[in-house]
Design a binder for these strands. Structure first.
Lengths: 227, 227
DNA sequence: GCAAAAGTGTTGCCCATACACCCATGC
DNA sequence: GCATGGGTGTATGGGCAACACTTTTGC
């Protein structure tokens, strides 16, 4: 019984996933999701938090963490029958992680690259990553977790760039602002402003108390990035 | 490692769940969700299908079956560390199930009764049932699984009564009809009609090929059952 | 005819989109 | 002034709730 982690962040306006290079067989030197065995007396949630800390030196209490799915194909691990429960973690642009015990190296990689096929992932981790991506996109529609990607305080523009990176297309800035500010409890104004290198300063916000978006922020009207 | 099944059906315009009376310790004579241990070489999906067949004599191929969540509290089972993966199954009003090996008896029970607290469920099955109910309600909004509750062929009124039973409130018949008939691929007309004991005959449909509802059939406008 | 359920038409409202436009800043 | 992103106003259109209305049956 193991847990595996799909850890997403947005860096340079791009959705990235944390991958390790495996130090042990099987799939030695192959890219993989961080993860490890569940210990006695641990819940799966606790195991996921521990792996997050051990393998990546990230503080799980500052991240959004949720269970994704259990993967159980008897052939999924050549060592034998290992069932894994995948977790989805979302966090702001984080310091470069340190390599853990089992990992020769850990690094951020654009999701598009990781799924591009140029460098296959160990085990069934490509399928897990795809499921995690779909779940993250869905979560942005229906919950306020997008704010978990933003270091506080943040601007409406910061939040919009999160949506654009995860969904993969541009949004109308004015309509986006209306939607997120209309939703009670999504954004909590700080009263401060941020002065960018160029352009008008933007109001700064913290995460509000709401966790569900009602109504949802639909991604139906997809217009391509280069509109 | 076990699987547990939340099996829903709609009988007498009411959402019901299949419960067994446990024949063995722990929680002997207590109501519980059907389930059992995963065998070597089995995926979790296969184990869920097998338990469905063994404990309830239902044919899983005719049901909607999906993974719900993994429950891992070390204290959840007094026998020791047992992690369970819960599955959600939805089916039309089914023949009364037969008791299986581990079950002294199996019976349908209204979900409201099972969660009412008058008769506590074994282990953490009440929490699993609540999660299953919430998932089923969500699925009706966003997918066409409601049709899985209807024996074919069925009428728009049959389908509406499914929604009313699962969501717990009445829907406007005319607007409901417009929504489900507008959604391409939800209903496939058979050309036949059903003549009820009273009232105008209704057109009969089969399940269409669509599985996602776009746009979703929102349950936002909840007006109480006794409007 | 009457009751009951199926099915259609219509109206008004809300809200999202699209886009024009103004604002505040650095250079 | 100009470029740049932040932020506001607004017209248009589509969808949905509400409900009046018609249709088709059994009795």
């Amino acid at each position: 019984m193991t847990v595996d982690l799909v850890i997403f962040t947005v860096r340079q306006d791009e959705l990235q996933v944390l991958l390790i290079e495996r130090g042990n067989e099987p799939y030695r030197r192959c890219a993989a999701l961080p993860g490890g065995f569940v210990r006695d007396g641990e819940t799966l949630d606790e195991a996921a938090l521990r792996e997050l800390r051990e393998e990546t030196a990230l503080d799980g209490r500052k991240l959004h963490l949720e269970q994704l799915h259990a993967y159980s194909d008897p052939e999924r691990d050549p060592r034998g029958r290992i069932i894994t429960v995948a977790y989805l973690a979302l966090g702001p642009d984080l310091p470069l992680p340190v390599a853990g015990t089992d990992a020769a190296a850990a690094r951020w990689m654009p999701v598009s690259t990781a799924l591009g096929g140029g460098m296959p992932l160990a085990f069934d981790h490509a399928a897990i990553l795809r499921d995690g991506l779909e779940r993250a996109r869905w979560q942005l529609e229906h919950t306020t977790v997008a704010a978990a990607f933003c270091p506080e305080p943040f601007t409406v523009g910061d939040l919009r760039r999160i949506y654009e990176a995860v969904w993969g297309f541009k949004l109308d800035p004015s309509n986006f602002r209306r939607k997120v500010t209309r939703t009670e409890g999504f954004l909590e104004p700080t009263g401060e402003r941020r002065f960018p290198e160029v352009g008008r300063p933007a109001a700064l916000y913290r995460r509000g108390v709401a966790s569900l978006l009602i109504p949802p922020l639909l991604r139906s009207s997809e217009f391509p990035v280069g509109r």
